[in-house]
């Protein structure tokens, strides 16, 4: 399969607004990205799924750095688990994946990097789309599929599924188009079993996340320890992680990595941080650090 953009790249591209920021602010985007990785790997015949499990098929590299990182991670544990488990696990790394996908889109000359200053003080980084060609192409392809009656290509089926279950349809269609074509959108969205599992997960995870976000706002937490506990609680709830051992080391109490996380939160003054396993570095969530560090 030779495509210019991968499914995660296409869905991230769709999520970039006119000013070059990632839109929507929706916290479900990391779940969507995790799901997109699984869908792309399934189309490339590296994994499979049925009504219950995700199945490991072929661990050979795809040639795409982000997909291969996810593939290596998936093949570290070949026991049969539900797709939602892997969505959670990849979702935990989604901030790193988003950065790497943005970097890949810049390298492919689909996006450019633009540094701006607000009030001459705060630096901000945007990723405007160059020429709009790829974005228009993705939208046109998907719209043509929905407005017509042809059977879908696998990549388009995945994009529709992600957009439908991830509540991103408005990035592709006008509200009245969604109303008019919803039965066709739903029909295509549910055609892939991974997509369907993802759909359920997105729904459940986003509901859980909304609840945890409200709890976070009520708690008014201050100390670094409490901030980190808050982050762990948020991630546990968001990705439905019950066992400590399913948490990555940087969020697992008692590990050296956890202590380093605590130090980073203390230094930065925010718990809105993540650890990039490939770079072995911590970052504050701004999707920009890949270019600046």
């Amino acid at each position: 399969m030779s495509r210019f953009l991968t499914i995660p790249e296409e869905i991230l591209l769709l999520s970039i607004d006119e000013s070059g920021g990632i839109s929507p602010e929706s916290k479900t985007l990391d779940v969507v990205i995790a799901s997109a990785l699984l869908m792309d790997l399934a189309i490339r015949k590296r994994i499979d799924s049925d009504l219950h499990y995700l199945i490991h098929v072929d661990g050979s590299p795809t040639g795409d750095a982000v997909l291969d990182d996810a593939l290596t991670f998936l093949f570290e544990d070949k026991t049969q688990k539900a797709p939602v488990y892997w969505i959670s696990q990849l979702g935990l790394r989604a901030d790193a994946y988003k950065e790497d996908l943005l970097a890949s889109l810049v390298l492919k000359r689909v996006l450019k990097v633009e540094n701006k200053r607000i009030l001459w003080m705060f630096a901000t980084r945007r990723y405007p789309v160059i020429g709009n060609q790829e974005l228009k192409e993705v939208k046109a392809r998907v719209r043509e599929l929905i407005f017509g009656n042809e059977l879908p290509e696998l990549q388009d089926m995945a994009i529709i599924s992600l957009a439908y279950y991830g509540s991103l349809l408005e990035l592709i269609f006008a509200p009245e188009e969604i109303d008019q074509y919803l039965p066709r959108i739903e029909q295509i969205a549910r055609m892939d079993l991974i997509g369907q599992n993802i759909g359920k997960a997105l729904h459940e995870l986003s509901l859980s996340f909304q609840i945890s976000s409200k709890a976070k706002a009520l708690l008014g937490i201050k100390t670094p320890e409490q901030k980190l506990e808050e982050l762990v609680l948020e991630i546990r709830t968001k990705f439905r992680i019950e066992k400590d051992e399913d948490l990555p080391a940087w969020l697992r109490k008692g590990t050296d990595q956890y202590r380093k996380t605590l130090q980073f939160i203390d230094k930065e003054g925010t718990s809105d941080v993540y650890y990039h396993p490939g770079k072995q570095q911590y970052f504050v969530r701004d999707y920009a650090s890949v270019f600046s560090r």
Partner: peptide
């Protein structure tokens, strides 16, 4: 007796 996503995708590709 069993069909996975791959099986469905195979039939979809043939139908296309």
């Amino acid at each position: 007796e069993y069909i996975s996503s791959s099986g469905l995708r195979a039939f979809l590709a043939v139908a296309k």
